[in-house]
Design a protein around this nucleic acid. Structure first.
Lengths: 218, 218
DNA sequence: AATAAATATTAGTAGTATCTAAAATAATGT
DNA sequence: ACATTATTTTAGATACTACTAATATTTATT
């Protein structure tokens, strides 16, 4: 059984491994976890003894298979709870992270299995991130610009490229938020403008807008 | 903000206060929490400094108003989560306690408020225990054992006393669940056995069964 | 390559929560 | 009332996690 602190380290390292190839640095972990590098060294050495990660002094760390599985399971729980909070309890998408950070550490496989079923086995969380399956497998999913989608393709809004407040207000007014389900209804060849469906609403957007919205597609 | 350990102490003392009048003993707390009396003394002194309880050496402790409110809130969360686990995720009654012990420490008033609403503001948990309101007030429970009802009295099943799985399966088979409307059709003087009506079905139960079913009467 | 800067580790300290063993206090029996 | 027993507290130790300050290693710069 792993402690709350251990689970958080594993989860963070798991996320960092996707960006930093060939070993995650102590500093990177410290920055991400808002802690001191010395604390990270301590914990990483402890986790290395438990064989959930590989560690060579001054050389960074890599999760072992076991470590990855544990981390993916924490992330699975986090994302399933986020779905619950947004879909069932109607939380706004941007308020759920902190709560899910707590719920992800609740220990009960049966609970997660039932929650998964109750939510009808979702593949993505409200931020568009994929939910690992119970074995820790994550479906490959790619983040694309809305402007790269073709007619009839769908995606979930996962973020924006430019984030000045005018642009965010524009999105807000049109009910485009992180987690919004978007479908391309039509695309103009000449200027790249689009007719899209957001939830139940249809609207027309210019290429400039479509160039600044990231979607995850499946 | 109170730690997990602190919340557990407050909760335990809250429960013990109902039985032991005039100060809860160190030993009683230690037994209930499966810990050592010396650990209890340490914690109780710490909590006394935080003014959530009153403590006089060798004389036991009593919660202050603040302490009671914190404890009641933890219990509120515990019981609401139990309702969620049983009613929404269809857990058997006897498997939810351990999970609720973890969920009760998740910190978010908004979460509990939304959960409460989603569950349609339940008054009792699956064991028939009353759920404190957000101010820590507990409705005086009109909870009775089925065996205490007389002929022609009615009630709604709100919980069970013993919750081993055989008993729960027995209830399950006879369609006795939380919310079931039960009417006493007849009661034997000698052995306390009863003929009851559950919904549209009539059935005969022994006193042992009737002793383990809690009803809310009106 | 030598030095400066950045990064990482170690050593020693602190807070939380727990424990064991010993000492203090309260309760009980004769 | 006194001795015995039960309960409670204190003192000191341990595990966990994080910190600061000092040291070591790696990387970048000139």
């Amino acid at each position: 059984m792993y402690s709350l602190a251990e689970e958080n380290y594993l989860k963070t390292i798991f996320h960092l491994e996707k960006e930093c190839e060939g070993g995650v640095s102590t500093n990177a972990i410290a920055v991400k976890m808002d802690t001191k590098p010395s604390s990270v060294t301590d914990m990483v050495q402890k986790l290395a003894e438990k064989e959930v990660l590989l560690y060579k002094k001054y050389k960074g760390t890599q999760l072992t298979k076991t470590g990855k599985k544990i981390a993916a399971n924490v992330i699975r729980k986090h994302r399933l709870w986020e779905v619950f909070l947004v879909e069932i309890l109607n939380f706004p998408w941007d308020e759920v992270h902190e709560i899910a950070e707590q719920l992800e550490h609740v220990k009960s496989d049966e609970l997660i299995s039932r929650l998964d079923k109750y939510l009808d086995f979702p593949d993505f969380d409200p931020h568009g991130d994929p939910i690992p399956d119970k074995h820790g497998k994550i479906k490959p999913s790619e983040k694309k610009l809305l402007s790269d989608l073709e007619k009839n393709q769908r995606g979930i809004c996962v973020g924006v490229k430019e984030s000045n407040s005018e642009f965010l207000q524009y999105l807000d007014k049109r009910k485009i938020a992180i987690g919004s389900k978007i479908k391309v209804l039509g695309k103009e060849f000449f200027d790249g403008s689009m007719m899209i469906q957001v939830g139940r609403n249809q609207l027309f957007i210019s290429k400039i807008i479509a160039d600044n919205i990231y979607l995850k597609t499946n």
